[in-house]
Simulated assay, not measured.
Amino acid sequence: MARPTIVLVHGAWADASSWNSVVTALRDMGFTVLALPNPLRGVTNDAAYVASCLGQRTAGPVVLVGHSYGGFVTTNAGLDGGDVRALVYVDAFMPDEGETTFGVLGDSGSALAVPDPTTVLDVIGYPGAPEGDADAFLKPETVHSSFAQDLPEQDRWLIAAGQRPLTLSANMTPSGPPAWRSLPSWAVIGTEDRIIPASAQRRMAERAGATVTEVAASHVSMVSQPRATTEAIVAAATAVGE
């Protein structure tokens, strides 16, 4: 069987550069790697976009990897484009059908699950937004204290300055049927994650029957501890090739 292509999908408040260390390591091992742009407009749009890219930009087996909200997207895109054989979730949502990101976070102890979201988010309107929708950016303090607290200060400021927003509506849109029901999955859980707390990640991973790796890291463990993510992806790729 052909060696799988590794396709990486970033989450909210990030872009494809969040995978840089992982991409470099995987390419050094001889893998073909794509780090796709995630539109961050909502799962219906975002999953369709990723599935379209999978169908048009890959040939042969694929290991599909999602970080954070990117996991919500890959869960919904994994069966709709390309030949996806395995899923890897990195500090990520692994939703079941009907779940929303807000629903998962509601009683989890997440730094985002607060009575007044504007204490942790900067919420601004965007052109053409449906009534009541808006873009949500992390406040710089949220980046420093809860999103990437294990990165050097300079890197945290770069994240705060260059983050891409997620729409509020994206957090309230229910997931469709999950790809993890029919595809093997792996999960990398940052034990110091304050955005999707480890307990919530463990619950979702256990439900999906995922092979779990835990690493002492924040919500951006693929940046601060890229080896754990790389090893989980290689394990998934190896299993696909057996």
Rank of each mutant, 00 (worst) to 15 (best):
R3N: 08
R3Y: 05
T5E: 11
I6D: 03
V7P: 11
G11R: 03
D15Q: 03
W19M: 01
S21K: 14
R27S: 01
R27L: 02
M29L: 15
T32V: 10
V33I: 05
L40E: 05
N45R: 14
A47M: 07
Y49F: 15
P61S: 15
D80I: 05
G82F: 14
D83W: 05
A86F: 01
M94D: 00
G103E: 02
G103Q: 03
G103V: 04
V104T: 08
L105I: 01
L112E: 00
L112M: 04
P117C: 08
L121N: 06
D122V: 13
V123E: 07
V123R: 12
D135Y: 14
D135L: 12
D135S: 12
A136F: 06
A136H: 04
S146I: 01
A148K: 12
D155H: 14
A160Q: 06
P165T: 08
L166V: 15
S169G: 10
P174V: 07
S175Q: 09
W180G: 00
R181Q: 10
S182I: 01
S185D: 00
W186V: 02
V188E: 03
E192Q: 14
P197F: 02
Q201M: 03
Q201R: 02
A205S: 07
R207S: 08
G209A: 08
V220F: 09
E231S: 14
A235Y: 08
A236K: 09
A237H: 12
V240F: 10
